[in-house]
Design a protein around this nucleic acid. Structure first.
Lengths: 211, 211
DNA sequence: TCATTTATGTACCGTACCGTACATTACAGT
DNA sequence: ACTGTAATGTACGGTACGGTACATAAATGA
């Protein structure tokens, strides 16, 4: 983001904002698919139409474009988290449903590719790592911990957050890591269901101990 | 690894094998630090001495060199896992000790950087992902599950593996992911200790339920 | 000691890349 | 309709990269 990042200051004309959208869409696809280094500006333009001038006028440089794209993607990818929880049924069934939704979201190709790119480029670009975790995991912890406190009298906020964090991280086990890395063997659906079962058991146990 | 990978077939002379070692060392440092794309062959040679001819004669091409390096690194990085467990004291204290050792290993700069590169390049190179998980996590699961079965009559091998896997993945919570991604805020030591506590509690509970 | 093989160094090729300069077109306000 | 401004297209510069060709030096085996 070196010289001219036109993200908010100048009011774009219709033509401009349409191109901007096209460039963002194409960049998102290509960055997610190939990563930062392997994606060239020429590829982006080929897919988005227009030309490099537009790109540099609107996003400054390649890094600026990347930053903008990834931050927009973070805000989009974790949308399902803000849908709220189902609210009927025994806590145990409810937690299982929450678990399934969470895993379904993680398993989405967009979240998967986004995670990969954040892990790869985060070291050189801490902003995207922060946004990713704040909008993603932390948001999930907050939602779940709110629910836990609602059904468990005497549960402190800190403890609820800890439990939520541990629940959501034990849930996928190493299945998510294997997906990210691309191992040839992956966890089976049966193993995943077993992990859900175990995780929910544990969380219910913790809640009972508190109450 | 396109044309001439001289990893095992031709007996290298002294001169050759010395250079080979130097190239491997330099490549390891640079690949881990910068990733595959950002590391150029010129950089490697600058650090290792010698010249491109040597490199191409011994490793075929850049990809071949990378593959060799990463696989050697996998075998080296997880060395601490094969040290075996401490074997005196109550299971609870023992599990805590195991947990601490495991986290210490994960937190090492070499394992950290290796994880990052495997997640990044694994998609294009499944072999390194497989080696990484087989030599790393799966080895840890095997060791721990062996111990669990030894102290818990009636625990099946499958169940022991599952418990070991869940234990070792819940242990770091999201702390390891945050490290990999490079967020500006990280989990505190207190939070980690709490996670260890909770994880060990859970595992002890599971073992008691079985026995 | 001499011939053959193996390792090394140098110089180079073609390519792909990011970024820029500048001419050109569409738009907005009057 | 006219004019200044913003968006676009074209063409190119400079560079760094992976990979190769070929000459040279070292080692090996007899």
């Amino acid at each position: 983001m070196s010289k001219a990042d036109n993200s908010e200051d100048t009011p774009l004309t219709n033509r401009g904002s349409a191109r901007r959208a096209a460039v963002l869409k194409a960049s998102a696809e290509l960055f997610l698919e190939q990563g930062y280094e392997r994606t060239s500006l020429a590829q982006i333009i080929e897919r988005a139409g227009g030309s490099k001038s537009t790109l540099y006028a609107q996003f400054g440089d390649k890094a600026g474009l990347f930053n903008t794209v990834v931050i927009e993607l973070c805000q989009a990818a974790f949308g399902p988290l803000s849908k709220g929880f189902p609210d009927k049924g025994a806590p145990e069934d409810l937690l299982k449903e929450i678990a399934r939704r969470f895993l379904d979201m993680l398993w989405g190709e967009d979240v998967l590719a986004l995670s990969r790119i954040v892990y790869t480029e985060g070291g050189r670009n801490p902003e995207i790592a922060d946004v990713f975790f704040d909008q993603g995991y932390e948001e999930g912890y907050a939602q779940l911990s709110g629910y836990l406190r609602a059904v468990t009298p005497g549960l402190t906020q800190y403890r609820a957050l800890t439990l939520a964090r541990m629940f959501l991280t034990m849930l996928p086990g190493d299945a998510y890591d294997r997906l990210l890395a691309g191992t040839t063997t992956q966890r089976t659906k049966a193993e995943l269901n077993e992990q859900i079962e175990i995780s929910v058991d544990w969380l219910m146990w913790q809640l009972k101990k508190t109450a």
